[in-house]
């Protein structure tokens, strides 16, 4: 079982590396967005799958990353790395400031608090046009470059995003397999029992909330460099809902589930766009279908099929 799983992962990596040069440019573009969404969705997925927290405010940190990159690279002409780092620092500070009071809440109340956070932030991004450019936004964000190699095509940017996704998944894997991961899942399953084992839920949740914010910020900075602009329309509450849908659709407790969920969110609407005005309805039907038929997400359903076939193959 373990060997076959490793084989599937290796094959997936080989496909991710080798296939894109042979795909149409438009499709590679979708894969770049799937990668960026994976990074942002991973933060939401860690909160949902490991802590049992539904975060509807990831857009705040995604936007902070994008605006930090846009402002600093366009108006201050700072190097790209400065935009990434400043975005992450602001996101971490804000996550600590907001997270400490609201993470005392649980369940629907906490989800609503994060939703409110997203709504307030969107209104501020709209009103603070001296900083964010308001509805016009900030354009002309330079392309990323590694030394003199400019990432000015979807394919080049794709490989950067692929690397970032791989690193983030590896680090998240480490976290889940560690004592912190054990404590998180214990807290998710029974907070009372976890507390009796000396787990501090509020402190632990705040740390993971900060981690989630950092991932959101990195994704936002990548988005800004790739699109070349950052404006308030890109940071609406519907994007936060999409970020939450990523782990819900893919499977909240699985890291691969986050990748699958991000691919679903990035690719399926485009595939359905050939149906014209109906495509949003069809996307909604697809979402309902997955959530109703596969409560453990797409990877949860696949794992179940795999488990049953393995049991059936046993003599």
């Amino acid at each position: 079982m373990k060997a076959s799983r490793s084989l599937v992962i290796l094959l997936s990596i080989a496909v991710c590396v080798a296939l894109p040069p042979f795909l149409p440019r438009h499709f590679v573009d979708l894969l770049v967005f799937a990668g960026i969404y994976t990074v942002a969705g991973l933060g939401v997925g860690l909160l949902l799958g490991q802590c049992g927290i539904a975060n509807l405010g990831q857009i705040v940190f995604y936007a902070i990353g994008a605006y930090a990159t846009a402002y600093l690279t366009v108006y201050v002409q700072a190097p790209a790395m400065v935009g990434f780092v400043v975005g992450m620092l602001i996101s971490a500070a804000l996550a600590l400031t907001i997270g400490w009071p609201i993470l005392r809440l649980t369940g629907y109340f906490l989800a609503l608090a994060t939703l409110a956070m997203g709504i307030v932030a969107n209104a501020l991004f709209f009103e603070w046009d001296w900083l964010t450019g308001g509805t016009l936004g900030i354009g002309g964000i330079p392309k990323l470059q590694i030394f003199s190699f400019v990432l000015d095509t979807p394919l080049r940017f794709y490989y950067l995003v692929l690397g970032v996704v791989a690193i983030c998944l590896l680090l998240a894997h480490n976290l889940i397999r560690s004592r912190t991961g054990l404590a998180l899942r214990a807290m998710r399953d029974s907070q009372d029992a976890a507390i009796s084992l000396a787990v501090n839920p509020r402190a632990l949740r705040t740390r993971i909330f900060i981690l989630s914010a950092l991932l959101g910020s990195v994704a936002g900075s990548l988005f800004a460099h790739y699109g070349g602009f950052a404006n308030v329309q890109s940071f609406g509450i519907e994007k936060s809902i999409n970020f939450l849908l990523i782990p819900v659709l893919g499977g909240a407790t699985s890291l691969i589930g986050v990748v699958v969920g991000a691919l679903f969110i990035a690719v399926v609407p485009e595939l359905l766009s050939q149906f014209g005005g109906l495509h949003q309805i069809l996307f909604g039907v697809a979402l309902i279908g997955v959530v109703v038929l596969m409560p453990a997400g797409l990877t949860g359903a696949l794992a179940e099929v795999w488990r049953r076939s393995a049991e059936g193959a046993r003599p």
Binding site: N174, L175, S178, R179, T180, G181, L197, V199
Partner: peptide
């Protein structure tokens, strides 16, 4: 999970293994 309190590694140490 019951033995976590006997150890002291932090979130950063855990993330970077």
């Amino acid at each position: 999970a019951g033995a976590c309190k006997l150890t002291r590694s932090g979130v950063i140490e855990d993330i970077f293994s």
